[in-house]
């Protein structure tokens, strides 16, 4: 059973501009032509260098949980975008958008996080969405 994933088509403009700030490695592993949107519960927010990672438990329609890992920018970039270590805590309900891995494993390059109160965490405010 697949988890509750919404795959969105993206414009050529977005494709050309995605993969932002992934300075320490190629973005070749991500499918920048796709965007997934997953609802789940934060397991861990690794606020680390060279990249931060958000690990989220995502249930499917039958309740089976898959652990998804989203790569984001490092702390100095996130902090400048107003995203703090304290912004995401284990147990928080979130909906995460990201570019999925090409190989189908449950990982993605993080685009944005929407918290239960509607707050949107965007590491790249102003960049094309």
């Amino acid at each position: 059973m697949k988890p509750n994933i919404v795959v969105l088509g993206l414009s050529a403009l977005f494709i050309a501009s995605s993969g932002a700030a992934l300075a320490h490695h190629s973005g070749a592993m991500f499918d920048s032509s796709k965007e997934v949107s997953l609802a789940g519960t934060v397991k861990e927010f690794q606020y680390t260098n060279p990249h931060s990672w958000l690990v989220v438990n995502v249930p499917d329609a039958r309740g089976k949980v898959t652990e998804w890992s989203f790569e984001a920018e490092g702390p100095s970039t996130l902090l400048r975008a107003g995203i703090k270590k304290s912004s995401l805590a284990p147990g928080d309900k979130v909906t995460v958008k990201g570019h999925p891995l090409k190989d189908g494993r449950p990982g993605a390059g993080l685009v944005s996080v929407t918290k239960a109160d509607g707050t949107v965490l965007n590491p790249r405010p102003g960049a094309p969405r």
Binding site: H24, H25, S26, G27, A28, M29, E44, Q46, T48, N49, P50, H51, S52, W53, V55, E67, S69, E71, G74, P75, S76, L101, D103, R105, P106, G107
Partner: peptide, 24 residues
Amino acid sequence: NMWSCNENNNVVKDESGTTNFILP
């Protein structure tokens, strides 16, 4: 702030020679 790249680096070169991750 000082930072170390090895703090959280799970990037690997796969058999095709391209970039991928080891996931949690």
